[in-house]
Protein backbone atom coordinates (compact mmCIF):
# COMPACT_ATOMS: atom_id res chain seq x y z
CA UNK A 1 0.00 0.00 0.00
CA UNK A 2 3.04 2.25 0.26
CA UNK A 3 4.08 2.15 3.92
CA UNK A 4 5.14 5.54 5.27
CA UNK A 5 4.92 7.03 1.73
CA UNK A 6 1.16 6.76 2.17
CA UNK A 7 -0.71 5.28 5.13
CA UNK A 8 0.12 1.59 4.67
CA UNK A 9 1.94 1.38 7.99
CA UNK A 10 -1.09 2.83 9.79
CA UNK A 11 -3.60 0.47 8.14
CA UNK A 12 -1.35 -2.52 8.82
CA UNK A 13 -1.01 -1.38 12.44
CA UNK A 14 -4.78 -1.50 12.91
CA UNK A 15 -5.00 -4.94 11.29
CA UNK A 16 -2.23 -6.32 13.48
CA UNK A 17 -3.33 -4.72 16.73
CA UNK A 18 -7.09 -5.02 16.41
CA UNK A 19 -7.67 -7.74 13.81
CA UNK A 20 -9.52 -5.29 11.56
CA UNK A 21 -10.38 -6.38 8.02
CA UNK A 22 -8.96 -4.15 5.30
CA UNK A 23 -11.95 -1.91 4.66
CA UNK A 24 -12.62 -1.45 8.39
CA UNK A 25 -8.96 -0.59 9.05
CA UNK A 26 -8.90 1.87 6.13
CA UNK A 27 -12.09 3.57 7.31
CA UNK A 28 -10.72 3.88 10.87
CA UNK A 29 -7.38 5.36 9.76
CA UNK A 30 -9.04 7.67 7.21
CA UNK A 31 -11.36 9.08 9.87
CA UNK A 32 -8.47 9.71 12.26
CA UNK A 33 -6.36 11.29 9.49
CA UNK A 34 -9.18 13.44 8.12
CA UNK A 35 -9.06 11.98 4.61
CA UNK A 36 -11.14 9.56 2.54
CA UNK A 37 -10.17 5.87 2.40
CA UNK A 38 -9.11 6.19 -1.25
CA UNK A 39 -6.77 9.07 -0.35
CA UNK A 40 -4.87 6.85 2.08
CA UNK A 41 -2.97 5.33 -0.86
CA UNK A 42 -2.15 8.69 -2.47
CA UNK A 43 1.46 9.57 -1.67
CA UNK A 44 0.98 13.23 -2.57
CA UNK A 45 -1.96 13.79 -0.22
CA UNK A 46 -0.55 11.61 2.53
CA UNK A 47 2.89 13.20 2.53
CA UNK A 48 1.32 16.57 3.33
CA UNK A 49 -0.87 14.98 6.01
CA UNK A 50 2.06 13.16 7.54
CA UNK A 51 4.17 16.33 7.52
CA UNK A 52 1.39 18.30 9.21
CA UNK A 53 0.85 15.66 11.88
CA UNK A 54 4.62 15.01 12.09
CA UNK A 55 4.17 11.23 12.11
CA UNK A 56 7.12 10.28 9.91
CA UNK A 57 7.62 10.23 6.13
CA UNK A 58 10.39 9.32 3.67
CA UNK A 59 13.19 11.80 2.94
CA UNK A 60 12.28 13.78 6.07
CA UNK A 61 12.97 17.46 6.59
CA UNK A 62 15.46 18.46 9.30
CA UNK A 63 13.78 18.38 12.68
CA UNK A 64 10.99 16.04 11.62
CA UNK A 65 9.93 13.31 14.04
CA UNK A 66 11.67 10.01 13.23
CA UNK A 67 11.45 6.47 14.54
CA UNK A 68 10.07 6.26 18.07
CA UNK A 69 9.36 10.02 18.05
CA UNK A 70 6.96 9.55 15.14
CA UNK A 71 5.36 6.51 16.77
CA UNK A 72 4.55 8.50 19.92
CA UNK A 73 2.52 10.80 17.68
CA UNK A 74 0.96 7.91 15.72
CA UNK A 75 -0.32 6.37 18.96
CA UNK A 76 -2.01 9.68 19.74
CA UNK A 77 -3.48 10.12 16.26
CA UNK A 78 -4.82 6.56 16.01
CA UNK A 79 -5.87 6.43 19.70
CA UNK A 80 -4.01 3.16 20.26
CA UNK A 81 -1.18 1.94 22.46
CA UNK A 82 2.02 0.98 20.65
CA UNK A 83 4.20 -1.50 22.50
CA UNK A 84 7.54 0.18 21.75
CA UNK A 85 6.13 3.58 22.74
CA UNK A 86 4.94 2.21 26.06
CA UNK A 87 8.38 0.63 26.64
CA UNK A 88 10.05 3.94 25.72
CA UNK A 89 7.93 5.90 28.17
CA UNK A 90 8.64 3.37 30.91
CA UNK A 91 12.40 3.32 30.30
CA UNK A 92 12.69 7.10 30.13
CA UNK A 93 10.58 7.70 33.20
CA UNK A 94 7.93 9.56 31.20
CA UNK A 95 5.29 7.19 32.54
Amino acid sequence: MGGIRTAGDLVLRMQLAKGMKLEVAKAYVAEKMGVTPIELSDCSIMREKRQTLDIGYPMPDPGAAKGIEAKVRIAEVLKIKINSVEQFKRKTGLQ
Binding site: G3, L12, L16, K71
Partner: peptide
Protein backbone atom coordinates in the same frame (compact mmCIF):
# COMPACT_ATOMS: atom_id res chain seq x y z
CA UNK B 1 14.85 -1.50 15.27
CA UNK B 2 11.91 -0.23 17.31
CA UNK B 3 13.78 2.98 18.14
CA UNK B 4 14.59 3.69 14.50
CA UNK B 5 11.50 2.64 12.58
CA UNK B 6 7.93 3.85 12.19
CA UNK B 7 6.11 0.91 10.55
CA UNK B 8 5.05 -2.15 12.59
CA UNK B 9 7.89 -4.64 13.05
CA UNK B 10 7.18 -8.21 14.10
Amino acid sequence: VQLNTIMPVL
